[in-house]
């Protein structure tokens, strides 16, 4: 579904964000990109919908090789969920959800704020599906809690039945219980719609719990690419080793203990 070949990205200020990325993600997979901030997760995600153009290499999304000409076509198959939700705060939930389908609304109708009936129906279905009620339709987004806002973001992302959903740290600004809620919702909705999800996270526990596959990024390189069950302390050390990050150290420690328990259980 998504295929990166020899991707390299260097920003104009000289920082190298990505190097030698070769990755191929099959249809329907929930692939987690794990890494410290600045590891290149967001850049890799943004390459898929053309928000960032790689310096080198080719990207193929659903058989379309990305280039300036093909990006508009590719964008119709790819939707995105953002860390800060990126919803229009003063607009209603319904308008925010329906704006996910803007690319398919004729210009004049969209300027008048008039969405076709089938889109309004789809919007209601999606709002119900992300566990919000009819009374939320007209509520302004900034009156909702963070978890509810991200669920609106998910509904918006599913408006066009995308083949690929990019989630850029979707739970970074949410508390742990809301994070679980949002990720499990995203996962089950992706299953339902048979979407491929490319999700960047920095919480190891969430990555192991929700990912079908975890790709570790460090300094623009892929340092591991494993099943969630096989992510152990050695793998995590590759991601977090260079940082004095208590969170990362904790995760490594937890993985080490788990590993010990596993091997202990096997001996018994």
């Amino acid at each position: 579904m998504i295929k990166f070949e020899q991707i390299e990205k260097q920003y104009p200020d000289g920082t190298i964000a990505l190097q030698n990325i070769d990755l191929s993600i099959p249809r329907g997979e929930f692939c987690v990109l794990l890494g410290h901030s600045g590891a290149g997760k967001s850049t890799l995600l943004r390459i898929v919908n053309g928000l960032v153009a790689p310096t080198k290499g080719r990207t193929v999304v659903d058989g379309i090789e990305l280039s300036k000409k093909t990006i508009p076509a590719a964008r119709r198959k790819v939707s995105m969920i953002h860390q800060d939700f990126n919803l229009v705060k003063r607009a209603s939930v319904a308008v925010n959800v329906m704006s996910g389908a803007l690319a398919h609304v004729p210009l004049l109708l969209s300027v008048l704020g008039w969405f076709p009936a089938h889109m309004r129906r789809k919007c209601c279905e999606l709002v119900a599906r992300v566990d919000l009620g009819e009374k939320h339709l007209y509520r302004r987004v900034d009156s909702l809690s963070g978890g509810q806002q991200q669920r609106v973001g998910i509904a918006r992302a599913l408006m066009l039945n995308p083949l690929v959903v990019l989630a850029d740290e979707p739970v970074a600004s949410l508390d742990p219980s809301a994070s679980h809620e949002v990720l499990s919702l995203l996962r089950s909705l992706a299953r339902e719609h048979d979407c491929t999800v490319l999700c960047s996270l920095h919480q190891v526990d969430l990555a192991r719990r929700f990912g079908d596959r975890i790709v570790g990024l460090e300094g623009g390189h892929i340092v591991f690419d494993l099943d969630p069950g096989k992510v152990d302390q050695k793998a995590l050390a590759l991601v977090y080793a260079n940082y004095d990050d208590p969170h990362g150290q904790e995760a490594i420690e937890a993985a080490r203990v788990e590993n010990l328990v596993d091997t202990g259980l096997k001996k018994i």
Binding site: R75, M80, L87, S99, A103
Partner: peptide, 30 residues
């Protein structure tokens, strides 16, 4: 105006006028 919503709409292929109408106008209307 806040770039976030504009980027979100750009990512799903909305044209500039639609971005202005849906991501900028609600922010700046008051």
């Amino acid at each position: 105006a806040d770039r976030g919503p504009q980027e979100a709409l750009q990512a799903i292929g909305a044209s500039k006028i639609k971005m202005l109408r849906y991501a900028v106008l609600p922010q700046v209307l008051p």
